[in-house]
Design a protein around this nucleic acid. Sequence first.
DNA 1: ACCAATGGTAACAAGTTGGTAAAATCTGAT
DNA 2: ATCAGATTTTACCAACTTGTTACCATTGGT
Lengths: 224, 224
Amino acid sequence: MIQIAMIEDDTEMAELIGEFLAKHNIQVTNYDTPSLGLSALKVKSFDLLILDLSLPDMDGLEVCRLVRQSSDIPIIISSARSDMSDKNACFYMGADDYMPKPYESQELLLRIHSILRRYKKEPIEVTKKEIFECSVERQEVRKNGELIYLTNAEFEIMAYFIKRSGFALSREEIITNVDSINYESSVKSIDVMIGRLRLKIEEDPKKPHHIISLRGIGYKLINE
Amino acid sequence: MIQIAMIEDDTEMAELIGEFLAKHNIQVTNYDTPSLGLSALKVKSFDLLILDLSLPDMDGLEVCRLVRQSSDIPIIISSARSDMSDKNACFYMGADDYMPKPYESQELLLRIHSILRRYKKEPIEVTKKEIFECSVERQEVRKNGELIYLTNAEFEIMAYFIKRSGFALSREEIITNVDSINYESSVKSIDVMIGRLRLKIEEDPKKPHHIISLRGIGYKLINE
DNA sequence: ACCAATGGTAACAAGTTGGTAAAATCTGAT
DNA sequence: ATCAGATTTTACCAACTTGTTACCATTGGT
């Protein structure tokens, strides 16, 4: 039995939809205020959320944002408005589908199944997320999606680290593989560069968790 | 770069959509007959398929069924018809979304990202609005819709920047790709042109936020 | 506890790069 | 041919990046 949460202030409408979906083996629980819905989502687990945009005491978009903060649950937004800015905002907030009112229950049913088909297939948290990503063509390194400003040599060192995440790298290896570093440089300058990198990428540069030192060996990047 | 296959017999329409999506880092390859599209899907790998229902020599639904037999690729179906029986059939065949024609390109973009986010665990990629838009036919560049007067060389540089938004561009690359710049010009003249461009497009040309310098590399345009 | 080896980093120095004013050159319209 | 505006070159400066050194802190072995 599929469990769906619904946040819709028009209880009559909610009931109609609920009855229809019940016929198709989907149980809908409606919450007629955003706060009720939000607290229910925290406690119970649902397969999907149907969210009405035009709510009384809180903006539907805000509700969507709040839900997305803590959950990856599929969200279908329905709204009486159908202009692009609304759609834009909804998808931006992480909605999975947008249905302008009025819509046919049958279409809602189809879209629910379509989304769940995709969603259920994805085992949650299978792929560990990488912390650092690097794009050479954009000349940028991102930490959890956030752009980090690096100088050229720093960028290339970081790019090399990312490429060889998890492996121990000697200072010599770093010097020979990073173009921006003069190959005649002393190995000590690597230490300095690493220090500068840490200032930019570590939460606490004094206690590095990403670029760690391997005494007598070199360094390695932890990227997970 | 997201790779999308499209099966659409209206090549003009296909081109329009392709151009729009290209601006958002999505490459579209259109096949104007189902058989072409089907064989392409067997050989190349795409992230998503956009399928038009009203095709000449084969029913779009049949195409959808054939694709689904061998692939789990996300499918967005677009159709001039919008009756429930069509939608029913499409979702039944395993389509991921259904867009009745005519639709706005922007909405297509949103739905593509929404589906890919689920399918590929794509980090919620914010499709921010572009700041700079360029029309070669009109020979104009607009910043947030507002026309900016540029000289010829400035315009072409800007056009190239916009086309390659977000990517690091070397001075050499700029010179060879911008016709208005004599290819024998010294790379230093790029700096001067960039300086003048900044005077016209930056709020504070001394602290550029749109055309940023990449020391030792070149420049890049931030267009979001 | 001591010591030697290693890593961290502040401070400095040298070299490089980008910004830009001003002059020179080019180009196209009249 | 002339002129105005656009483009390119030149030259200089300011800012930034990188590399070295020196000194301190930490580690690990004895």
